[in-house]
């Protein structure tokens, strides 16, 4: 795999949460890079700091110390408007609980991402249908998400994350609410998309079965990041 500029880079990143009764070190001196066409698995138990790391990578919160580079630029160099535009057009999120909007149809959920990315409505509809078709849920495009199975919901969430052509996909426990087979299908799809469309996919999970799809597995325990088993 040819490695050029990293999509995301963390350098000596520490995150400390101030809480009543003391402070919690959620991430300690973490350094990490991820590149295009790479699927990285952040593996660790609950409370290990996976989510903290994901949210820092997504620019949703600042580290207490250390540097974060997003698409080659320091996180601090982005204005809030820049970050919003990056989230709309260059990043895609996949959540354990899918986070779909239940009051609008499947296709409207997918088209909403494209709307924020500035894609004209007609083209957005065309792209949304194309992705729903790729995920084999085109026939469900006009139904409300509440009527879908868990697996179907996650497919919609994946379509929504990928449809804008996002270069960085951040997935937080994407298989957590799914049966094994459904979960692996989703990861397989993400992996194929990662390779064929040069996306950088970062998955945080405690599910070791995802490891077989990952180019790299990073282990996190008590806020300490390491390669291989800790």
């Amino acid at each position: 795999m040819e490695k050029t500029n990293p999509i995301i880079k963390l350098k000596d990143v520490t995150k400390i949460y101030q809480r009543s009764g003391g402070e919690t070190i959620a991430l300690h001196n973490a350094s990490f890079e991820a590149f295009a066409s790479e699927l990285v698995l952040l593996l660790g138990p609950s409370g290990s700091g996976k989510t903290t790391m994901l949210t820092i990578m997504a620019g949703l919160q600042r580290p207490t110390s250390g540097d974060v580079f997003l698409f080659g630029r320091q996180f601090y160099e982005y204005s809030s408007k820049n970050l919003q535009q990056i989230r709309a057009s260059k990043m895609g999120f996949i959540f354990q609980t899918f986070c779909l909007l239940d009051s609008i149809s499947v296709i409207d959920n997918v088209m909403l991402s494209l709307k924020f990315a500035g894609i004209p409505k007609d083209l957005a509809r065309q792209k949304a249908i194309e992705f729903l078709d790729r995920l084999e849920i085109k026939h469900l495009m006009n139904v409300l998400p509440v009527t879908l199975s868990q697996g179907e919901k996650q497919r919609v969430a994946v379509a929504r994350a990928l449809v804008t052509g996002a270069e960085l996909i951040i997935a937080d426990e994407p298989t957590g609410s799914l049966a094994t087979q459904q979960g692996m299908q989703i990861v397989d799809f993400l992996n194929r998309s990662c390779k064929t469309e040069s996306r950088c996919v970062i998955i945080a999970s405690h599910d070791e079965r995802i490891s077989k799809y990952a180019d790299r597995v990073m282990h996190l325990r008590d806020g300490i990041l390491g390669n291989g088993n800790l």
Partner: peptide, 13 residues
């Protein structure tokens, strides 16, 4: 939650 999702998706201000 919906508004949070919409914000996460990069909704303009």
């Amino acid at each position: 939650i919906d508004y949070t999702i919409i914000k996460a998706l990069g909704a303009p201000r």
